[in-house]
Amino acid sequence: MPAQPFNQRHRTVIEVTGLQKKYGELVAVDGVSFRAEPGQIFGLLGPNGAGKTTTIGCISGLLEPTAGSVRVLGHDVVSDGRAARQQLGVVPQELALYEDLSATENLQFWGGAYGLRGAELKARLREVLTAVGLLDRAREPVKRFSGGMKRRLNLACGILHRPKILLLDEPTAGVDPQSRMRLLELVREEVARGACVLYTTHYLEEAESLCDRLAIVDHGKIIAAGTLAELRAMAGENDLLLLNGRFDPERARAALQTVGGVEVVQAGPDAVRLASREATRKLAEIFGALAAGGADIRETTLTQPSLETLFIKLTGRKLRE
């Protein structure tokens, strides 16, 4: 077989098929399938408890899937785990650092755990410490670091051995905007050198600005997937209108039938959600109809199409509620 660059041999570097993970009765991941490719950032976007960390755990070999399969560069993570894990860089959601050790010693440990030794390790140490801006604090014990500094080191430990695949589980949680910029910068650099990044977050802005492709997960299921453009199109051209106040849900629904081009997403006793094209122009008409239907409107929120509107449209909830 002629030698081929790995990009061509394995266009797909992460292949998740029908993945399911149960904790007793609870189905944390419920039939998730997706593929991720080199040089791309694949985002898993979802609220707390959606199953993002569990999915990453199944890919990294920490958790054994209840059903389905995960392949990393063609290696099954269960039957051929070591070969699969050799290609991975994992940055866990919870910081996993030796607090008593210095940044350098932590990097030496995690680099060593992936087989880096000697001069190669030393060279990479400097590079990575510079990249995460910790070179001048490298000898201090980690317990003296700020939360943002620890996050940066946490990421550094995962990229030290230049993995072909990076699993980043909310790497920017609890980090100030400056540190966040720096972290995202680093992630983009990894992608530029050809790595495939799986990135979980519940920050919409982050997902929108960073990810090439996205899957929106909720209750362990992928409820929408595609490129950013595809997902925006799914959200439709509709604006979302949230009305808070006091409603009779049945009468409100009936009243809104009379307004053309308005779709009722959700109607409850104290909130009604609508989707409509160019909702601003129809506001007067909508208010009129609802008032006739006995409603008392106290607050109005208009949202233009985005991943947020897509999520609301699909689940009836906001992403962070």
Binding site: S60, Q86, V90, P92, L97, W110
Partner: peptide, 11 residues
Amino acid sequence: QGLLKRLASAP
């Protein structure tokens, strides 16, 4: 501290 967990994902 999640260190063993992280180690579990090492090769």
